[in-house]
Amino acid sequence: MLKRSIENLGNRTIQGVWRIGFAARFFLAMLLHSGTAFRRFGLTVREMYFSGVLSLIIILVSGLFVGMVLGLQGYETLQRFGSESALGTLVALSLVRELGPVLAGLLFASRAGSAITAEIGLMKATEQLSAMEMMAVDPIARVVAPRFWAGVISMPLLAALFSAMGIFGGYLVGVHLIGVDEGTFWSQMKSSVDFEQDILNGVIKSAVFGVTITTIALFEGYDAPPTAEGVSGATTRTVVTSSLAVLALDFVLTAFMFRGLN
C-alpha cells in the first residue's frame, strides 16, 4: 500500500516535470510564431476585445469596492495613531504596488484565463485545430499567439484601471464619507508615491502576471484531453495554477523590487 503511494507520487512528479518541459517548449513556440500576431494585428485586437474589454466591468467594480474598503479600514487603523492624513498615501501605495496588479491578475485569470482555456480546449476537441493544421495554417501562429499578446497588452491596462478606480473609491470614502481633508489626501499621496519605484514597478508586475496567466491558460487549453471532462479539468487547472503563480511571483518580484528601499 505504501509502496503503491510512493510509486504514484514518483509517477506524478515525473509527469509534472515532463509537463513543465512541454509547457516551456510551447511558450518558446508561441514567441517564435508571433510574427502573424503583429503583421495581422486585427487578430490580436479581436482577442483584446474578448480578454480585455469583456473583463472591464469586473475589474472596475472590484477596484472601486477594494478602494472603498481600503479607505474605511485604513482610516480606522490610522486614526489610532493620529495619522489620518496619511490615508491617501496608504490607499495609493497599497493599490499601485500590490493590490492593483495582484487582484487584477487574479480576476483576469478567473474571467479571461478560463475563457481562453475553454475556447482552445473546445477547438481542439472538435478538431478545429487539426483542420487548421491540415489546411497548412499553423494553429499556434493563428490562434494561440494573438491571444497571448492580447493578454500581455491588456493586463497592465487592466491593473492601472483597477488601481485608478481603487484610488477613486478610497477618495470617495475618505474625503466625502469620513471627512478627511481633500487637499491633504491628494498632496500626501503625491509626495509619497514615486513614479519609478512604485508605479513603474506595479506596471512591470502586471506585465509579468499577464505573460504568466495567458501562457498557462493557452497551454492548458492546448494540452487538454479532447473530452468534456478534459476541458473542464483544464479550465479549473488554469484558474488554480495561474492564481498560485501570480501570488508566488508577486512575492518574488516584491522582494526583488522593494528591497532597495531600506
Binding site: M123, T126, M135, A136, V137
Partner: peptide, 29 residues
C-alpha cells in the same frame, strides 16, 4: 497540405466564423 483537403468527422468548422468565412479561410490565408 495545400494540395490536400480533409473532411473531418463532424465538419470541424470554425465556430467563430460564418459559413462564408469558413470556406474563404484557405483562400484568404
Amino acid at each position: 497540405r495545400r494540395k490536400m483537403g480533409m473532411l473531418f468527422q463532424f465538419g470541424a468548422l470554425f465556430t467563430d466564423m460564418s459559413v462564408f468565412d469558413n470556406v474563404a479561410f484557405q483562400l484568404r490565408e
